[in-house]
Amino acid sequence: MHVLGNIIWFLFGGFIGGLSWTIAGALWCMTIIGIPVGMQCFKLASLSFWPFGKDIVYDNTSGASLILNILWLIFSGLPLALGHLVSGLLLTITIIGIPFAKQSFKLARLALMPFGARVVNIR
């Protein structure tokens, strides 16, 4: 079911979501200081392209993560989170869309606090 969910997700909105993470990563990588932020964006873009069968674990609560999350939220996090939130709300209109809305809400939370998060495979 993960494969089918990922294919449907990619065709009906996952491509746009992943592309937005990729663009944010490319913009952050334009400066030397922003390269670590951009690399995290590229990792999370792959999650946004194919979210089924993966989960997010928040385990790093260091001061550096907090500072990066605050900078991220100010410069890039809110537009990405709002995009995933609106997508999730639209997907909840139908019963069939609820599993996809759940993935969209997962990505919206991640868009607010991506640093200190790690992607794990669910089996």
Rank of each mutant, 00 (worst) to 15 (best):
D59K: 13
L82Y: 07
S46Y: 13
R109K: 14
F12Y: 13
G53T: 13
A117H: 02
P79G: 06
G83C: 00
S48L: 00
V119P: 01
T92M: 13
C29Y: 03
W72Q: 06
V3H: 12
M1D: 10
Q103G: 05
W28M: 11
G38R: 08
T92Y: 03
G14R: 02
W9S: 02
L47Q: 06
W21F: 06
S48D: 01
I33D: 02
N6L: 06
I93Q: 00
I98L: 12
I7M: 12
I23K: 11
L85S: 14
P79Q: 02
I74W: 09
Q40D: 10
L11D: 03
G25W: 12
S62Y: 05
G88N: 07
T92H: 00
I122V: 15
L19P: 00
F42L: 14
I35Q: 07
S62H: 05
F10K: 07
C29D: 05
L73W: 11
L110N: 03
K54S: 15
A45Q: 04
G5T: 02
N69L: 09
G5K: 12
S46W: 14
G13K: 09
M1T: 10
L4Q: 07
G13R: 05
V37I: 15
I70D: 00
G13Y: 12
W21N: 01
I33P: 03
N60I: 01
I67E: 01
L112V: 12
I98S: 06
L89F: 13
N69G: 08
G116S: 03
L73Y: 13
S46R: 12
G88T: 03
L112Y: 01
N6C: 04
W9K: 04
N6M: 07
G77R: 04
L107V: 05
S76I: 09
N69A: 10
S20L: 06
F49R: 05
S76Q: 14
S62M: 04
G18D: 01
K106E: 08
G53P: 13
L89C: 11
M113V: 15
I67W: 08
R109L: 05
K43H: 11
L19V: 03
Q40R: 15
F52I: 04
S65P: 02
S104F: 01
Q40M: 15
L85H: 07
G53C: 12
W9M: 03
S104A: 14
I74C: 09
H84P: 01
K43Q: 11
V120R: 14
G83K: 08
